[in-house]
Amino acid sequence: MSREEYQVPNTGSGNSPAIGGGSFNAGQRDFSGESGGGVIYYICGDCAVRVPLERDTPIRCQKCGARVLYKERTKRMVQFEAR
C-alpha cells in the first residue's frame, strides 16, 4: 500500500487485525475526533488538568498555556491473560 493510498481509519469500519475474533459492538459511541461535535479531553503536560479540545481549536492548555497535551487513557475495556 503506497503512502498516498492510505486512508485514515473510520469509526466503526471494522476490527483491527490485532484483535483476531473479538466481537466489536458498533453501537457504542466512539468519537475518535473525526466528525465535529465530539469534545475530547486531553491532559496538560505541566498542570495535569483535563483540557477539552475540539477539532481545529489551537492546542493550548487553558490554565497554564502549555502546548504539550497528552491523550487520556482509553475508556475501552482491555483484556489480559495474567501470565
Binding site: S16, I19, G22, S23, F24, N25, A26, Q28, T74, R76, M77, V78, Q79, F80, E81, R83
Partner: peptide, 11 residues
C-alpha cells in the same frame, strides 16, 4: 507475555 484484546462489550 501479555496479550491484550480490546473488546467493546465486557464479557
Amino acid at each position: 507475555m501479555a496479550k491484550a484484546k480490546v473488546k467493546k462489550d465486557e464479557p
